[in-house]
């Protein structure tokens, strides 16, 4: 049992745990905006850890640097906040239900108005 294998296994375990936590958050949290937090953060980091494990594994397997998984990691780090932002905008537009204990609803209404103004610009 060598060290590289143990490190790879630890990273795979961390990745799997964070992926699972992201999905648990998605199914457990009470409203859409809260659910948005779990997948954008936990799942992205979980996949990052898995890709790191894959890099270590293939580098030790082949004997040269195999780092092309970095591409997926960076792509996800760039796109995860963008898709979260777009889904939040869509959620505002379709008037998704919010948890009753949410504070700052006047800010939400301002954002919603801005969203509707923009929809008025749109002419088919």
């Amino acid at each position: 049992m060598d060290w590289i294998e143990i490190i790879t296994a630890v990273f795979i375990l961390i990745g799997g745990l964070f992926t699972l936590i992201g999905s648990i958050g998605l199914s457990r949290l009470p409203d859409f905006y809260m659910r948005l937090h779990a997948p954008t953060k936990a799942t992205t980091l979980g996949l990052g850890a898995l890709l790191l494990a894959s890099m270590i594994h293939f580098t030790s397997l082949r004997g040269y640097f195999s780092i092309h998984e970095l591409l997926i990691t960076f792509f996800l780090l760039i796109t995860a906040p963008v898709s979260a932002h777009m889904m939040a905008k869509a959620g505002l537009h379709v008037k998704t239900r919010v948890e009753d204990s949410t504070r700052g609803l006047e800010v939400r209404d301002a954002a919603k108005r801005r969203n509707e103004e923009n929809a008025d610009d749109y002419q088919p």
Partner: peptide, 25 residues
């Protein structure tokens, strides 16, 4: 906005039209 979405407990939702406020959750 991307930094805010990826860091502790906040997600950016919308930008005001005059670009002076960022609405976050």
């Amino acid at each position: 906005a991307s930094t805010i979405s990826l860091t502790p407990g906040t997600v950016s939702c919308e930008l005001s039209k005059d670009r002076r406020f960022l609405y976050i959750h």
